[in-house]
């Protein structure tokens, strides 16, 4: 099980280099990070996975972008939009994570989308930056949406990932802090551990429970 931060933004998107983020992530208890627009590699014992964040594109363009990118072993994530878009994106082979569900409209992720996500092993991302940085109504709405998503997760068992969306060292949080923040949305420690291992889960190919030998 690899404890992973599912989205960080190194320089030039943020103010820290990917090496420094990896160094800090190691000190904070992470085994790997998903860094946007960065080549993969390992630094200070932390595996840096290359991430591709797709946003504000129609479904047709998302399909072509995913086709081009999926052979390079990148972690592909798409920003959520309305319900039809989300269902279409979840059905695309090669998409790993659906992000920004807390900013989409209320009915954007329903039980049908949850069932599809579970079947296609597409993770739903929980963005902790809103809980850390936002105040009052924005944070309350985000907590409410995450609690709603976790109800569906317990019913349909689709993968969940946790991300800090750190653009700086100062935005990273250690694993214990993340567990504390996740307790605000009703996640207990085993849930948090499963979610932190979510990126590893979706990238590991499924092995059939029954193997036909002859």
């Amino acid at each position: 099980m690899k404890i992973t931060d599912a989205a960080v933004y190194p320089y030039p998107l943020g103010d820290a280099s990917v090496r420094r983020l990896a160094l800090e992530a190691a000190a904070l208890g992470f085994d790997s990070i998903v860094a946007a627009d960065t080549p993969s590699g390992t630094y200070a014992g932390v595996e840096v996975r290359s991430g591709l964040m797709i946003r504000d594109l129609p479904v047709k363009d998302v399909i072509s972008t995913v086709k081009r990118a999926k052979d390079f072993g990148r972690v592909i994530s798409v920003n959520a939009s309305n319900n039809n878009f989300n269902r279409a994106v979840i059905g695309i082979k090669g998409v790993h994570i659906l992000r920004g569900i807390q900013l989409a409209d209320k009915l954007a992720f329903d039980h049908v989308a949850a069932k599809m996500a579970a079947d296609n092993r597409v993770a739903v991302d929980i963005d902790l930056s809103l809980i850390i940085h936002a105040r009052s109504v924005v944070r309350q709405r985000a907590i409410h949406r995450y609690m709603d998503i976790l109800v569906l997760e317990q019913r349909f068992e689709f993968p969940v990932t946790l991300s800090t969306h750190a653009r700086s060292l100062l935005d990273l949080r250690n694993v214990r802090d993340i567990a504390g923040l996740c307790s605000l949305i009703g996640m207990d420690v085993p849930d948090v551990e499963r979610a932190l291992a979510g990126v590893g889960t979706i990238l590991t190919p499924l092995q059939p429970s029954v193997q036909v030998i002859a």
Partner: peptide, 10 residues
Amino acid sequence: TNRLFLTKDD
């Protein structure tokens, strides 16, 4: 005056 966080390798 923004601070950048780098390593010696960078």
